[in-house]
């Protein structure tokens, strides 16, 4: 049964009561292999996406840059709430991001979550990136609700250790380094694929 229905669902010919909005409300990730496996065909708009990475410098921003580059052509700013390092303008411009759209909010640990929630809820931002270190389920839920009410894309970059923690995010993607690949831990509106998306396809 699943084998018959799945192609119909994927091509959008079969209408499902749940999660139908997803297909329209997604932002292509810029990586064809990843877009194919995500239910909406990209990062869900108006929701939180979580990226889990084991250490700095394993491609966590490379994964986001194409989407951010698309968003930076719009009128609304992309807000980085308390980034761990300084974005190097040369690399971001090389990635296609218009720096005029980039805004950095400096905040402490606790205030950062507040700021992220405000930005998500306000609907004034194209995307909000945050790096919560200590976030409990209630906080994640607040952020997810804020993203929904503000209809803003939220990216949450967190260490791999929290993969076991329950999360309200619509999409959870874990970056693995050996071999380099992306494992989709959760995607609302579909079952996460069992196979990891390899990095080689991402690079292409």
């Amino acid at each position: 049964m699943g084998a018959i229905l799945q192609p119909l669902i994927e091509t959008g010919r079969l209408w499902r009561g749940q999660g139908t909005a997803l297909r329209h409300e997604a932002l292509p990730t810029g990586f064809a292999a990843l877009d194919r496996v995500l239910p909406g065909g990209g990062w869900p708009r108006a929701a939180l996406s979580e990226i889990l990475f084991p250490a700095d410098g394993v491609g966590e921003l490379r994964l986001l840059l194409p989407a951010l580059a698309v968003l930076s052509r719009g009128a609304h700013p992309i807000v980085l709430v308390a980034p761990p390092y300084l974005p190097f303008p040369a690399a971001w411009i090389a990635g296609g991001v218009d720096l005029r759209c980039l805004q950095i909010v400096q905040a402490g640990e606790h205030d950062a979550l507040w700021a992220a929630e405000q930005c998500l809820r306000s609907a004034a931002c194209a995307a909000v990136l945050c790096w919560p270190r200590q976030a409990d389920t209630a906080t994640l839920r607040r952020l997810q609700l804020a993203a929904e009410t503000g209809r803003t894309i939220g990216f949450m970059l967190r260490p791999s250790q929290v993969a076991t923690q329950a999360s309200m995010a619509a999409v959870r993607i874990g970056i693995e380094t050996d071999p380099p690949c992306l494992r989709i831990l959760k995607c609302r509106g579909g079952n996460p694929p069992t196979q990891a998306v390899t990095f080689s396809t991402l690079a292409a």
């Binding site: 303008p89 411009i93 005029r100 980039l102 950095i104 909010v105 400096q106 905040a107 700021a115």
Partner: peptide, 11 residues
């Protein structure tokens, strides 16, 4: 967060 909490970046 303070007067200069939100800012942009330029090359």
């Amino acid at each position: 967060l303070g007067e200069h909490a939100a800012h942009g970046l330029a090359l």
